[in-house]
Nucleic acid binder design. Structure first.
Lengths: 169, 169
DNA sequence: CAAGATAGTCTGTGAGGCAGAACATCTTGC
DNA sequence: GCAAGATGTTCTGCCTCACAGACTATCTTG
């Protein structure tokens, strides 16, 4: 390396860094969410478990864990708490006796509904600096990135791959 | 509450949740970033410290800590490692002898430059499902949210408030 | 039926962050 | 100029929390 001429272009400013912006926004969102879900077992993740279990597409512990990006061993005590609070039930999956289907109790659905509304309000406050149209754009772009679907619905997505790499490998 | 009729509207699907999308994208980004900065003391945050220190606007430990959202006590050992690797120096601030100015060494600037380029490539791969114009839009919207500036440059931003609430209170 | 994969649970352990105190220095009010 | 409080940095102790690994039960494949 000695004697090598290194062209040091001026690096980007910090606030041009996607990671920085993502981190900051995520952190702020997490912070407001924590206030909204105060008292809910598991905090923000407790809410996400409720939401994931409720929409029914996936409902076994492992499926929910993967979707939310939490370790499967964490789901155990997350669900212990939610079940203890009477918000969800673990039901044996009739098709696979190893698996448990997570279903919301009536109280769980009410709670989820209430949290949903309040979280949505909090999000709008968080997105306040953006024009209404821009908020929708941001939501849509993030959603497409997270679900791994391109504009045409194509699914060539690194986010999904990275997520997959994080859990099972 | 007994007897109250609760209208349970169908809650949003999980993938309509901003928090879910943010979390997933952030996690995926973090994961790719970790690979790129493998070997750098402090991991992704080490990079961010370098980037923040380099652009010079803020350079004391506390200012960097606040910008990055890390605890001030964490900055101490983060910088210990970076300084040990010869990437930054702690210089006494001539204007305030309590404070240390964090400046990059020549090696630090080279390293930052290299990381910058590789991270930018990784980000583009991550944003691949979006059209090029959409990627710029996403970057811009996130940047504006994170910096707390509206379209007109106005600064009425909850992200900044929440970030502020997290550290000093 | 045997062998391997998968769902869930439990236990131990280690990293990592936060609170709080200590110390040095700056600032403000008098 | 001095006392009192605020601010920047470091250090210590504690405590949470997530992950690895082992274990059981069940499914799947050959």
């Amino acid at each position: 390396m000695a004697g090598t001429i290194v062209v040091v272009t001026t690096p980007q400013r910090v606030d041009a860094d996607l990671g920085w912006a993502l981190g900051r926004v995520t952190r702020a969102h997490l912070h407001t969410a924590q206030e909204v879900v105060a008292g809910l077992p598991g905090g923000p993740r407790g809410y996400q478990v409720l939401a994931a279990a409720n929409d029914g597409e996936v409902s076994t512990q492992l499926a929910i864990a993967r979707m939310l990006g939490v370790d499967r061993t964490v789901m155990t005590y997350l669900l212990d708490e939610l079940e203890g609070a009477g918000l969800v039930e673990r039901r044996p999956d009739p098709a696979d006796r190893r698996a448990r289907r997570i279903v919301l109790t009536a109280a769980g659905r009410e709670r989820l509904c209430d949290l949903d509304r309040r979280l949505r309000e909090a999000e709008e406050r968080l997105l306040a600096p953006l024009e209404p149209a821009e908020r929708d754009t941001l939501r849509e772009l993030l959603r497409r990135l997270a679900t791994g679907t391109g504009q045409d619905g194509a699914s060539a997505c690194q986010v999904a791959e990275e997520i997959a790499a994080i859990d099972g490998c």
